[in-house]
C-alpha cells in the first residue's frame, strides 16, 4: 500500500485536501506529497494529481495560467516518460490547456455553475483509473463546475472514440446517455478522456467527493483503490 502520490497546488486550487483524504483512505493513511506550482521538480512519484479549484482565478481561460506554471514542465516530462496523471475538474481544464489532453472545456451550455450530483457511465475499464469498475457501471458523482462543456472538433472526437479514449460519459441513473442527461452540453456527453497511452485522465466530476459513507456515497472509492492496486509497489 505504498502508492506515492503527489498533488499539485496552484494559487486558487481548493480541492487538494479532499483529494489528499481520498488518497490517504486507500494508502493506509499515507499523506500524498503536496507540491507547489512554483516548484520545478517532482519528487519520485507513481501518480501526479491536479485537483479542482479556480487556479489563478480562472483568468483568461480556466486553467490557462496554471498550464504555464513552472511545475507543469515537470508534469509534462513525467507524463512523457510514462507517468500517471489524474486531473479532476480544474485539473482537467489545466491538462487540456497544457495540450496534454485533446479538446477544451467551454462554459456550460446552460451558463449556470453546476453544483449537484450526477451520474456517469464507465466506458473503459482498461485504465488504472477505471479498473476498479465494471464496463457500463453507473456511478453517482458530484459536479462542481461552470466550465465543463467538453469540446473537440468532429475529427478529434471520432479519433478519441476510435482509440477508446472516452473513459466516462454523463448519463441518467439508468446509464442511458441522452441529451437530457447531459448536464453541461459536452460533446458526445464526454465527462472524461485519457491520453493515447491511457496514463493521463482528465475528468470533470469529483470522484474524491464520494469515498466514504459519511460523505453521502462511495462511488469514487474504486478509482482510488484501483490506482493503489495498479501502481503501488
Amino acid at each position: 500500500m505504498s502508492l506515492r502520490a503527489g498533488i499539485v497546488i496552484f494559487p486558487g486550487t481548493n480541492r487538494e485536501r479532499d483529494m489528499a483524504i481520498a488518497l490517504a483512505r486507500v494508502t493506509g493513511g499515507r499523506s500524498p506529497a503536496m507540491i507547489w506550482h512554483k516548484d520545478t521538480d517532482l519528487p519520485p512519484l507513481d501518480l501526479v494529481v491536479l485537483p479542482g479549484g479556480f487556479s489563478h482565478g480562472d483568468y483568461l481561460r480556466c486553467g490557462a495560467m496554471a498550464a504555464q506554471s513552472p511545475i507543469m514542465r515537470a508534469v509534462r516530462d513525467f507524463a512523457a516518460s510514462g507517468g500517471y496523471v489524474l486531473g479532476v475538474c480544474n485539473g482537467f481544464q489545466i491538462l487540456a490547456e497544457a495540450g496534454m489532453l485533446p479538446g477544451a472545456l467551454l462554459r456550460n451550455a446552460g451558463l449556470r455553475f453546476l453544483a449537484q450530483d450526477h451520474h456517469l457511465r464507465v466506458e473503459r475499464t482498461d485504465t488504472v483509473f477505471t479498473r476498479g469498475y465494471a464496463e457500463g457501471e453507473v456511478l453517482r458523482v458530484v459536479l462542481a463546475h461552470g466550465d465543463g462543456n467538453y469540446f473537440a472538433d468532429e475529427a478529434t472526437l471520432d479519433r478519441l472514440e476510435g482509440e477508446g479514449r472516452v473513459a466516462f460519459r454523463y448519463c441518467g441513473p439508468d446509464g442511458a446517455v441522452t441529451p437530457e442527461a447531459n448536464p453541461n452540453g459536452s460533446a458526445r456527453s464526454i465527462a472524461g478522456v485519457t491520453s493515447a497511452n491511457r496514463r493521463v485522465l482528465g475528468l470533470m466530476p469529483h470522484p474524491e467527493d464520494y469515498v466514504d459513507p459519511l460523505m453521502g456515497g462511495e462511488d469514487g472509492l474504486p478509482m482510488f483503490e484501483g490506482l493503489v492496486g495498479a501502481l503501488a509497489a
Partner: peptide, 13 residues
C-alpha cells in the same frame, strides 16, 4: 473570439 461553430452561450444570453 470563439470559432464559428463553437457554441457561445454567453453571446446567446
Amino acid at each position: 473570439m470563439l470559432k464559428p461553430g463553437v457554441l457561445d452561450p454567453q453571446g446567446r444570453a
